[in-house]
Design a protein around this nucleic acid. Structure first.
Lengths: 122, 122
DNA sequence: GAAGCTACATTGCATTGCAAGATAGTGTGC
DNA sequence: GCACACTATCTTGCAATGCAATGTAGCTTC
């Protein structure tokens, strides 16, 4: 179970990524997040996030009838959203790389190296 | 530059990871985060976080003199902190794996696959 | 004595995920 | 007909946490 704090800032980008694959709607996005392994993301998380993306012109939305329930609100990425998604991917990779470097040292039992500065001072 | 929202929930674990390598103090942690590629993390972030870890018994602290400034507050991981760090690592891997799966599909231009449920309905 | 680095701390703010609850359409079984 | 379950969206208020701004203080160098 991924803690909610850890999703902050990441979930938004991931939802944009899902929309970029295919025009889709909130309820379906929720199912896809589960399939990808994000766990069960609350609807009280997804819908406000989608509304915010729409307000910031990251996505555009159209209503379409569903054969088996109320009408769906389908989202697509705008050009601005595409640019934002690319930026998100870059930022995520940056964080991911930093964490991996750190984990590598920790798992290796590698202690802090003395920096050049400290060595000079000795 | 990693956006602050994306650090939420991750930074705490990373700081515990740094402490686990070696007893260390706030100012030095800030330098190490920079070296690992997290960027410049504000002191207004680090010190409250350390105090919280201490309050929750994840770390213990002792003051030691410094030769070149005010005394330092050195932190070590408690047993509880070590358990928490392991849990953090598991959670992080879980999130990371989910994001990688998603990115893989997006970069492949892979569209949503129809689930078994949908196929049956057709 | 001023500047600059070291070192720690506090206050209040902004962002964002979530629980809880409301609304409503459709289909199934009794 | 009516209860129940699933589909589908939205709102409100809360909690967690990173950060800017600011303050304090020790030490060194010029």
């Amino acid at each position: 179970m991924i803690p909610s704090q850890m999703l902050k800032g990441t979930l938004e980008g991931c939802i944009m990524a899902i929309i970029s694959k295919n025009e889709t709607y909130g309820y379906e996005i929720s199912r896809q997040l589960e399939e990808y392994g994000f766990g069960s993301i609350a609807e009280g998380t997804i819908y406000p996030l989608l509304l915010r993306l729409e307000k910031n012109n990251m996505v555009s939305a159209v209503y379409r009838q569903s054969e088996l329930g109320p009408k769906r609100k389908y989202y697509s990425l705008t050009d601005k959203g595409k640019t934002e998604l690319e930026q998100f991917a870059k930022n995520y990779r940056e964080l991911s790389a930093a964490v991996e470097r750190l984990f590598y040292d920790v798992e290796d039992g590698r202690n802090e190296q003395k920096s050049e500065r400290d060595v000079k001072r000795e």
